[in-house]
Design a protein around this nucleic acid. Structure first.
Lengths: 236, 236
DNA sequence: CGTAGCCTTGAGAGAGTTCAAGTGTTGTGG
DNA sequence: CCACAACACTTGAACTCTCTCAAGGCTACG
């Protein structure tokens, strides 16, 4: 499959590819395939023998696991730039997570053989991949941090802020996926999320309207309120 | 510093080094340094410019973070074989976590320069390092899984089982670190851990004696009880 | 032997869950 | 185009598990 110039440009901006020399970049893109997924489609399943690693180019993916006691756990929701499945792809072992598209998405598939070859022949690529996996480590650490010892309001506000550009004063956007899933990601119940959003209204977070629209009147203020929120919830 | 034959043999069994050809192994060990730490000593501090990555050879380390709102969060407790700090070491950025020894420990330090050289010149080592970082990802996923939607008793039982050999029938051992820290790792309070251990006595977990000794009368049974424990706590 | 830290135990309060009903939104077929 | 069903979300009330605060016992170490 030939990639369009537009697609190549988009790939070139991903952390995994950004620092590659033109030649190495070409070798990498030569063997990857772009695939589109609709909401609900599965990219890979936990337990399947891995035949590729994946990089999210556009959209949002849910990485989840079914624990030994049979409950589904959302491990992480990832978007543009994040990669996953490298280790299973390299060793040929089973995928540790299932990946499901939770918005229309565009995914780059890196077949195992190609991946192994790139790692062994392009030190540049090996470094980039290493950093990409390390970025996952960082993301998971953030997740753990937010799961532990923080009130629900804190988690929710933090989540919303993570969707705001760092410099924005006021911000209005659409949640990238449903509230049920957001709740699962934060390790709380949907009802609890709903109530928390209600409380956050006092801090300038409007979540009414078409139900997925969020408007933050003052991002900076919200940030500082969150910082103060060591444990206390927002009181009416 | 010259490494003893014993030390070399020990290193050779770590996942990071096990699959290296003798030559690559030698190059790797040539530039690493072994260091010992006592309980409470700090290996690296969050925010410090990274000058090395680390591999745990013996003992237990606490990886923790101070969140933006000032609370310490235990990210992970790691033991023999686990590595950390690769990405910061390679990019020269700041360490994302603080690492503190919570038992007497032996740590291999891989200086940045050496690490970068190994990655670029020894594809074999680059692959091994990639898998080592991926192992961290797996460990953190386990952590997230246990933090979400599981009762305290479940977490505690699961934690104890993680310290049992897979095949053991009955098992008796010493907790590798204090209960306060175990509680922090599981995202609960010390008091809650204490009460949970009390309840688990009904499932054959004896935690009395010298206070750090644990005896499990029937590991298989405990495992199956845990599997049944989808949500329900252990009732008296 | 005494102090300090670790652990346990108790009682009370509070945050989040559960169960249940109700409202709104979306998409489909008549 | 509307009716209907399915699904997403909200809201309320009762409950329960975990946390908090506090006291007491045990262990370790000087």
């Amino acid at each position: 499959m030939q990639l369009s110039a537009l697609e190549l440009a988009s790939l070139k901006q991903l952390p995994l590819f950004a620092r590659l020399a033109p030649e190495a970049f070409e070798r990498a893109t030569d063997c990857l395939r772009l695939e589109t997924f609709r909401v609900g489609q599965v990219i890979c399943r936990q337990g399947d023998a891995a035949r590729a690693a994946f990089v999210v180019v556009e959209g949002w993916l849910k990485l989840s696991r079914v624990s030994s006691w049979g409950a589904e756990t959302v491990i992480h929701i990832c978007s543009r730039g994040r990669s996953f499945g490298e280790a299973p792809a390299l060793t040929g072992s089973a995928h540790e997570v299932s990946a499901e598209s939770v918005s229309p998405s565009l995914i780059a598939r890196l077949p195992s053989a190609c991946l192994a070859q790139l790692v062994s022949e392009q030190p540049e690529f090996a470094s980039a991949l290493l950093l990409s996996v390390s970025a996952q480590v960082g993301a998971l650490m953030d997740e753990i941090e937010s799961l532990k010892g923080v009130s629900v309001d804190h988690k929710v506000a933090h989540f919303i802020l993570s969707l705001c550009p760092a410099s924005a004063e006021t911000w209005r956007f659409r949640l990238p996926y449903g509230k049920r899933l957001i709740a699962a990601q934060l390790g709380i119940k949907q009802e609890t999320l709903s109530r928390s959003l209600g409380r956050l209204r006092a801090l300038g977070v409007e979540a009414g309207e078409t139900s997925r629209e969020i408007a933050i009147s003052n991002v900076q203020r919200l940030r500082s309120e969150v910082a103060k929120m060591t444990r206390e919830p927002v009181r009416a």
